[in-house]
Nucleic acid binder design. Structure first.
Length: 201
DNA sequence: CGCCAGATTGACT
DNA sequence: GTCAATCTGGCGG
């Protein structure tokens, strides 16, 4: 039984949304086939006060979307790879959550075909990898993930207790904030390898 | 139209 | 750990 994550969920602080997205399912509908995976790694991005956020870089289409309606996809390309974000906070407040890694669930055969690799570990363990595995590109930009008829959705799956949640600084950003805004499920083999947690404690 | 930035990945040392 | 490849949007001319 799949229960769609409600629209109101995305009106919160991106760090909260990022944390609570862990354990939920990202579902991609392709014709009569379904590809899905559990979200195991996310990052939160703010607006003006976040030097790593593209919402702080002046007028562009990304900025417009981040200021827009929460619960919609924000898809753009970096270094030749599509990256999938979900807009957070109410309209007028720029924020978003980057989906960084999934644990493959349904449609693994399609993911293998899309990625061209047979190694489960490498299928969706990275922001650019999972978009390719799920056939996500700019054509899906701006779509709501909370609607029943959407080709890309997020549904409830599993609650992750605090004891299983790890945090660290965001990966690949030049100017990070002082607080750790990357969230991941400890010990999950599909979490992308990156920075180590700030402290061992 | 040309040039550059950029939240990545994959291969090599 | 380090380095090159890959693609689109934004901006200047």
């Amino acid at each position: 039984m799949s229960r769609l994550v409600e629209h109101a969920f995305y009106f919160k602080d991106p760090a909260i949304v990022a944390r609570k997205l862990l354990g939920k399912l990202l579902v991609r509908r392709l014709g009569n086939r379904v590809i899905s995976g559990m979200i195991v790694e996310t990052e939160a991005y703010y607006g003006e006060d976040d030097p790593a956020s593209w919402a702080s870089k002046g007028d562009n289409w990304i900025r417009r979307v981040m200021y827009g309606e929460p619960g919609r996809t924000l898809i753009y390309m970096v270094h030749g790879h599509w990256l999938l974000n979900v807009v957070a906070m109410p309209p007028g407040v720029p924020a978003g959550v980057l989906i960084r890694a999934l644990e493959p669930l349904e449609g693994v055969d399609l993911m293998v075909r899309n990625r061209g690799v047979n190694n489960l570990r490498l299928l969706t363990s990275g922001p650019g990898r999972l978009t390719r595995a799920l056939a996500i590109d700019k054509s899906l930009h701006g779509l709501p993930v909370y609607k029943k008829d959407s080709p890309i959705q997020i549904i409830y799956h599993r609650e992750i207790p605090d004891s299983e949640v790890g945090r660290s600084g965001r990966i690949g950003v030049k100017r990070d904030l002082d607080i750790p805004l990357r969230f991941y499920i400890k010990g999950n083999p599909y979490v992308s390898v990156g920075k180590k947690p700030k402290s061992s404690g």
